[in-house]
Design a binder for these strands. Structure first.
Length: 416
DNA sequence: TCTGGGGTCCTAGGACCC
DNA sequence: TCTGGGGTCCTAGGACCC
């Protein structure tokens, strides 16, 4: 049996842990640059605040209902996530961290799943202050579904188990087709046009028709919903095949100087991510573009791909090549909104070059030391060309404190 | 004024090979 | 009317996830 445990309204819940006066009140968290809504408390959902809505469009509701609004605080959420995951790991035989707020659990070999499940949910909530829910079923897709019901119906007390044919069919009949894991907006619309409205309807389709119209991806979902497990546990995720770092700017920028600071910073982040998974970049892509929403302004979207002479994870080298790419595509006279670096080709083996002029052993030792220091104090060591980001940094006007990772921002309790 | 960021997988079609 | 067959690799685009 598979379990899916996930944190309820994770980012909003993190903000509440350190600010209990927000309990019972509507809370929303914004995307990078304070752009749009990416997390909502139940109270905010009840007010009809939709996921993905641009922040400026809900100004009126914020004032009228007293909604608390936060910028994303990924340092805080990442740390809270690690705490949640480590508590879960203490109670179950196998754990697959699926995203910042979700994990699959392998319940094989556990005698009383209901008892263990309830215990895990209780321990996490007690240990971190983050409410979680658990769904259990014979396949991952059904576990996702069970999780939805664990959240939706209070009677389940946050743990819902689909362990009989009767429960499986009931769950499928109550589930709209678009709510199934693996069925997105496009395919949901396509299926609805053919008269398929629930997950149950979908499982009654002929396998050949599913295969033909939805490819083997849809076929897998179809099988999983029928109780045949096709998606296994993946305890140690394989190294990434592509690594991307990009950001929109807080304000639009025009000068090459600021753009190169941003590109250098993103390239340095990519290099660090590469080293974390012990990989090397074979080729990289640099892109810049203007603000597509501003139809009144001249537009420019461009990218450059560069092959590295020798596969590398060296910050200095990757930054050099990224800036070379930027020089190839930069044009004066546009107001840029976003820039990024993508490592498009990755290898696990550093093949040395015959005409290589870089002392790679020395550089690797240097990077190890840099990573060590930056591991303790983020961004303490960086290249001068990365600059200070004053002109292009993110907009984060509503940021909460990094309560758990910075002594200077630790929670302050006044006892009178 | 203001609209996120980082991934994966699959397919179709073209280029190229023997 | 007629134009091999079978295979690989690459890329762009589409779909999905959180």
């Amino acid at each position: 049996m598979f379990g899916l445990i996930d944190c309820n309204n994770f980012y909003a819940s993190c903000e509440r842990v350190f600010n209990p006066s927000l309990n019972g009140k509507p809370v929303v968290v914004l995307s990078n640059n304070d752009g749009c809504i990416i997390a909502r408390s139940n109270e905010a959902k009840a007010l009809g605040i939709k996921m993905g809505t641009p922040a400026f469009q809900i100004k009126e509701e914020v004032a009228r209902y007293g909604i608390s609004v936060f910028s994303s605080n990924y340092v805080l959420y990442g740390d809270m996530s690690a705490r949640v995951m480590s508590i879960i790991a203490q109670h179950v035989p196998e754990l697959e961290i699926y995203s910042i707020d979700e994990a699959f659990i392998n319940f094989d070999g556990i005698r009383d799943i209901s008892q263990t499940g309830k215990e895990v949910v209780h321990k996490v909530t007690k240990g971190t202050g983050i409410p979680v829910s658990l769904g259990v079923a014979p396949t991952k897709t059904l576990a996702k579904l069970a999780n939805k019901y664990a959240k939706k119906y209070p009677a389940y007390q946050r743990v819902c188990i689909i362990d009989t044919e009767e429960k499986r069919i009931k769950a499928l009949q109550l589930c709209e087709i678009g709510d199934v894991w693996g069925i997105g907006r496009r395919i949901a619309r396509k299926l609805q046009a053919e008269g398929i409205f629930t997950a149950y309807d979908f499982t009654l389709m002929a396998q050949s028709r599913v295969r033909k119209h939805l490819t083997i991806v849809g076929e897998r979902t179809w099988k999983e919903l029928r109780g045949e497990s096709c998606i296994d546990m993946d305890a140690a995720p394989p190294p990434k095949k592509q690594i991307c770092t990009s950001r929109s700017f807080g304000t639009m920028i025009e000068d090459f100087e600021s753009l190169s600071e941003a590109i250098a910073t993103h390239a340095a982040t990519c290099a660090r991510k590469l080293r974390e998974q012990h990989s090397y970049a074979v080729s990289i892509m640099v892109f810049i573009h203007t603000n597509g929403f501003r139809e009144d302004l001249p537009q420019y979207w461009q990218n450059a791909v560069l092959k590295l002479p020798v596969p590398t994870a060296d910050t200095i080298e990757i930054v050099q090549y990224a800036l070379k790419g930027l020089r190839q595509i930069f044009l004066q006279g546009f107001r840029y909104k976003k820039a990024g670096v993508i490592i498009t080709e990755i290898t696990q083996h550093a093949q040395l070059g015959l005409f290589d002029t870089v002392d790679r052993n020395k550089r690797e030792r240097l990077m190890t030391v840099v990573d060590q220091i930056n591991g303790e104090h983020a961004n303490r060591i960086k290249l001068a060309v990365q600059g200070n980001g004053r002109k292009w940094k993110l907009k984060q006007e509503l940021l909460s404190q990094r309560y758990t990772t910075d002594l200077k921002e630790i929670i302050n309790v006044n006892c009178k």
